[in-house]
């Protein structure tokens, strides 16, 4: 299989970069993880793919390039500028991605029940004072509050409801987020963990985890 190129994000302006999360090591680790999962994902034969907190849109665009036009690709971001840039990134890279401004998957939640084949979340995982969580701007891309868990912990209970029977959930974390505790929560939902890829980047030890039934 030919290698898929990293999506073109040269359209991001300096103003965009002040307002949204510019692709960084965590984004690229996630792209590498998806590339590594390519055969698995092709065999999964997904039809509904959702990314929560898409930022620049590089990840959902990459997934759409990886899997082709056999799926619905939907992404959300709480930051309106990010949702807009995500759509632009997909368009420039010639893939079809639907983008919406939403708190997690709020307004889609009913429809998505048992339908999501691939769910991706690169959450705000940085440990911050709890009051820094809840912004609609660039801070929303990194401020994770206590243990860096405050935002991802809100998505976790939804995961078992929206995943399809064979659906998979990819999550980016850092060491401080407490992988063992996250695994314990997901196991209580009937989801098991597989570690896909880890990498040290400066002071962050990043991992991409996969959860499925």
């Amino acid at each position: 299989m030919a290698t898929i190129r990293t999506p073109n994000t040269s359209h991001l302006t300096s103003d965009d970069i002040e307002k949204i999360y510019e692709p960084a090591e965590d984004s690229f680790l996630l792209l590498d993880a998806l590339e590594k999962e390519r055969t698995f994902l092709k065999e999964l034969n997904p039809v509904v793919c959702v990314e929560v907190g898409s930022g620049s849109g590089i990840v959902i665009t990459y997934l759409a390039q990886l899997l082709g036009n056999c799926c619905l690709y939907l992404c959300t971001d709480i930051n309106p500028r990010a949702a807009e840039v995500s759509r632009k990134t997909a368009t420039i890279n010639k893939v079809q991605v639907e983008s919406a401004v939403s708190d997690l998957i709020c307004a889609f939640q009913d429809w998505l029940k048992n339908k999501v084949d691939v769910l991706i979340f690169n959450p705000p995982y940085v440990i911050t004072p709890p009051e820094e969580v809840g912004s609609y701007g660039i801070e929303a891309s990194w401020a994770g509050g206590e243990r860096g868990r405050q935002v991802m912990d809100r998505l976790f209970p939804l995961v078992p409801h929206i995943l399809s029977p064979l659906g998979v959930f990819y999550l980016v974390i850092i060491k401080e987020n407490d992988e063992a505790d996250i695994e314990r929560i997901m196991v209580s939902y009937g989801l098991r963990k597989i570690s896909i890829l880890s990498r040290r980047s400066g002071s962050e030890f990043l991992s991409v985890l996969r959860f499925n039934r």
Binding site: A83, S99, A100, V101, S102, D103, C106, A107
Partner: peptide, 10 residues
């Protein structure tokens, strides 16, 4: 809906 993106925030 602006620039093709619906805003569902409350």
């Amino acid at each position: 809906v602006s620039n093709g993106v619906p805003n569902m925030l409350l």
